[in-house]
């Protein structure tokens, strides 16, 4: 479904990705963990063609998306939804208009159909009755959930989540985790989840990849990760900073 080969990217003089290889089989959930500033958001943006790599390939459903024009990428982007780290809501639109945006853009004109689908989404993200609020009046976690609703309303076959639970309270975090699992179980969505939240990682992951210094340092199941004797990984899992230079 989704494969990354030898992806490298430098911004200015900073080498951010130095040859990333990843495979996500159809219907599976890959969790990417790694230190803050390690290039996880940059990697996700490459996967939907928002950034162009210096070298490497990205295969989505058998098509290499590198070098595709913005208009050709549109077809891919309809299949792959992305939740941005900050939600990236359109701040001139209400919650309802934000969530309905992909439907309207797809040519849906029937306001009753739109309203029904938006309400269904609001139920899923547990924000019923907030249709008319503007994004500036939402908390960080609410923005993220609205952003999530906006990216899943057209039922993409693959969803990329950038820190979906960061900054949320434990209860809402858990409901987001369960939502990710539910989308996977019910619609067989392929997911890539970037997170720092190890509890949530273990909860949703089929596989976990640890991104370190621009490469995939570890790739395996949750159990393999926990069993790993590697000090770097143990330090990350236990949140130790002693081993650092």
């Amino acid at each position: 479904m989704l494969a990354v080969r030898g992806l490298t990217k430098s911004i200015g003089t900073q080498e951010i990705l130095r040859g990333v290889d990843l495979d996500v089989p159809k219907g599976e959930t890959l969790v990417i963990i790694g230190r803050s500033g390690g290039g996880k958001s940059v990697l996700l943006k490459h996967l939907v063609g928002l950034m162009q790599p210096d070298a490497g390939e990205i295969w989505i459903e058998g098509q290499n998306i590198i070098g595709l024009s913005e208009r050709k990428l549109a077809a891919i982007r309809r299949k792959v939804g992305i939740l941005f780290q900050g939600g990236a809501l359109f701040d001139s639109m209400t919650v309802e208009e934000n969530i309905a945006f992909p439907l309207r853009e797809a040519g849906e004109r029937d306001s009753k159909v739109i309203r029904e689908q938006v309400n269904e989404m609001l139920e899923v993200i547990e924000l019923e009755g907030q249709q008319k609020k503007m994004p500036v009046n939402l908390s960080g976690g609410m923005k993220k959930r609205v952003g999530l609703a906006r990216s899943i309303i057209r039922r993409p076959s693959c969803i990329l989540y950038d820190e979906p639970t960061a900054g949320l309270d434990p209860v809402v975090s858990d409901s987001i985790n369960r939502l990710i699992r539910r989308l996977q179980e019910r619609y067989h969505v392929t997911s890539v989840v970037v997170t720092h939240d190890m509890k949530s990682a273990f909860h949703i992951a089929d596989h976990i990849a640890y991104l370190h210094e621009g490469r995939v340092y570890f790739h395996g199941t949750s159990a393999e990760l926990e069993r790993s004797g590697d000090t770097l990984i143990q330090d990350f899992l236990l949140g130790r900073s002693e081993g650092l230079p």
Binding site: L50, L73, R77, R78, G81, G86, F101, P102
Partner: peptide
């Protein structure tokens, strides 16, 4: 604020 990227990501 990544809204332009959000537009692009929504095709």
């Amino acid at each position: 604020t990544e809204q332009v990227d959000a537009l692009r990501a929504l095709a």
